[in-house]
Design a protein around this nucleic acid. Structure first.
Lengths: 342, 342
DNA sequence: GACAAGGTTCAAAACGCTTTGGATTGACAG
DNA sequence: CTGTCAATCCAAAGCGTTTTGAACCTTGTC
């Protein structure tokens, strides 16, 4: 059933039917109702390809998921972010198109997205410290919102980020307040902007108390469970073992806990852990009482907001780019305790 | 730059340029090269909306991600599956459009996908025992491939599944061979088809040895870490504690391990664990030596294959629906050992 | 009873591509 | 020189919408 058929059935012109369905004023209330009713009865939906060809708007948003060829890891927060964004899109009648793409194809992908005209804007995931995608998208002229920030980029751009620096500063202070001085940082890959900010917050908190960070206790890797396990074992078995860990992901924290258990240490008593928690739906940090003390911010909610921001920008491309900084909560769980022997 | 502009620049008709670009034979090799070169130089890409309006093919595939309103959990395997499928799509020049949708909106979503004509086919995720989406898609007439199966559906349909029953039968036999008799099953939600098959495999293996499964040791829930932890604690502290666990997900297994540690039990010595491992990129099961003994099958590879099957079906809608059953490997890790005291 | 004003409706063009059905050309055989 | 055939190319229609510009009714007014 297409517009022409529907209009024939109604004895009206396609023009009028189109106007009736799209809420234009120059059609009588009576016919509008007649049209709406018929459309519903025949389960009519405008062909979106034809519609967007005529209007010039794609009614779709792109997400380009980078897969670093080195690691081939799909960011685990991605699924929840998408779920949040997806809610917003479907409420607004937008589609979401996904491109999973390796670093090498990234530039080409963005260019194609624009020239093939199949999206009205994109969300940029996992920005690095100096992310080339931002100038690229500026040049291409495709509206975009960055999930995170890119510190080295001077251009204005729309972003939504968590205050990673502040979150890690607070987390570090929590450990310092408990008497810990030898604190290990198991950070994400420090090519990533968020990881740099987290490290900065960590270092700033230590500095403020006159504690100098030990290089041997700071690592930066893909945030897996194995990473947490291995790093924790090595550090705990080495000289100058840490008494507390600050990790960038719940999975890494779980790995640290496994190392503790292997070494016969008790979490929260012998060694403390604070982690960043993205509130992933399939990986909750306990329920009433969190397992890990954590800085917490919902990545799903971030998805909702970022999508909203992008739709706003598409609707009003002239406006100044929105910026939004979320604060993470600091929640206390069973993984932290005062320095043993204090 | 659109087709008309490009053709003017070349002094050719749009017809010829289109044919040249699409590899039709009725254009001389010389002009084809000239056209290709110009297209590359001007970075021309056909507007995909116009193209698919003209051809009737959307050049896109839909994935409808169900979010059960009760649990609101995004399936963690989803990200890796998408990554695999995405590879196949982009090689074939297809787009992937995602709809994150709650149970209530599911039917409407599929109907819209068809009537708005924005995809040529869909992948069905997370099929239940008697999944209504399969007859629905049959009725709608939209090509589809199911990731998994739906036992109660009699209609023929294309699917790609892992031999879950066999995998769990083998896993159970491994534990039986090690002397275990009180084996707990921490299954996924048994509304899901895969979970039903896993249970069947588990029960069959026990039956074959004359061991009767204890209802108190069989659970079925959303596969989180907390679930594993809580179930394991309750079972281990109850009467008739199990000596081994069979879990449906690595996360659940991790939860079981945490429970063991809380209770001062050693994994692999006091209590054994075998788990299903989807080989998620961000959740590897150890590296050279697996942490957990596991039945292993890559969900990413499944994504690649399922996508290929769907594209085949779109290309040849008349053919019989493809069916593909993958076998899971059984790998030995550090989580299994002979029954203590045997 | 004519005329302007508003309210409704429509025919046709446009969006950017593919594809059908010819038209044109050149080579070649008769 | 003519007719045939294949090789190239092109004009125009068509895909399903929206949107522009104009036409057609009603009214109400003088």
């Amino acid at each position: 059933m297409n517009l022409k058929q529907l209009s024939e059935k109604l004895g009206l012109s396609p023009t009028t039917v189109s106007r009736a369905l799209n809420g234009y004023p120059e059609v009588s209330e009576k016919t509008r109702q007649r049209v709406n009713e018929a459309a519903r009865r025949h389960n009519y939906r405008p062909n979106i390809r034809a519609k967007s060809l005529a209007t010039g708007r794609a009614m779709a948003v792109g997400h380009v998921i980078p897969i670093s060829t080195k690691h081939e890891i799909v960011n685990p927060i991605f699924a929840d972010f998408i779920a949040g964004a997806g809610e917003t899109y479907s409420l607004a009648g937008y589609d979401m198109v996904l491109s999973v793409v390796s670093d090498a194809d990234e530039v080409r992908t963005y260019r194609e997205l624009k020239s093939k005209a199949n999206v009205d804007g994109v969300i940029v995931h996992g920005p690095q410290f100096d992310d080339r995608r931002i100038p690229l998208l500026h040049e291409i002229g495709l509206p975009f919102v960055v999930h995170g920030r890119s510190s080295a980029v001077a251009l204005p751009y729309a972003w939504l980020d968590v205050n990673n620096r502040h979150a890690f500063e607070r987390a570090t202070n929590l450990l310092l307040d408990l008497g810990h001085r030898r604190i290990a940082l198991l950070n994400g890959l420090e090519a990533m902007d968020f990881a740099i900010r987290r490290r900065a917050g960590f270092v700033a908190a230590l500095d403020a108390r006159g504690v100098s960070p030990a290089p041997a206790l700071m690592r930066s890797e893909e945030m897996t469970e194995i990473y947490g396990y291995r790093a924790a074992r090595e550090m705990l078995e080495g000289p100058e073992a840490p008494t507390a860990f600050l990790t960038s992901s719940l999975l890494t924290a779980i790995g640290v806990r496994r190392a503790l258990e292997d070494l016969g240490l008790k979490m929260g008593r012998d060694v403390s852990i604070v982690t960043y928690d993205d509130e992933l739906s399939y990986l909750p940090n306990g329920d009433e009482v969190p397992i890990f003390s954590a800085t917490r911010s919902s990545v799903r909610e971030a998805g909702r907001i970022a999508a909203r921001m992008l739709l706003d920008q598409i609707a009003d491309p002239g406006g100044p780019p929105q910026e939004r900084l979320l604060e993470a909560a600091l929640v206390l769980g069973g993984s932290t305790g005062p320095l043993a022997g204090v």
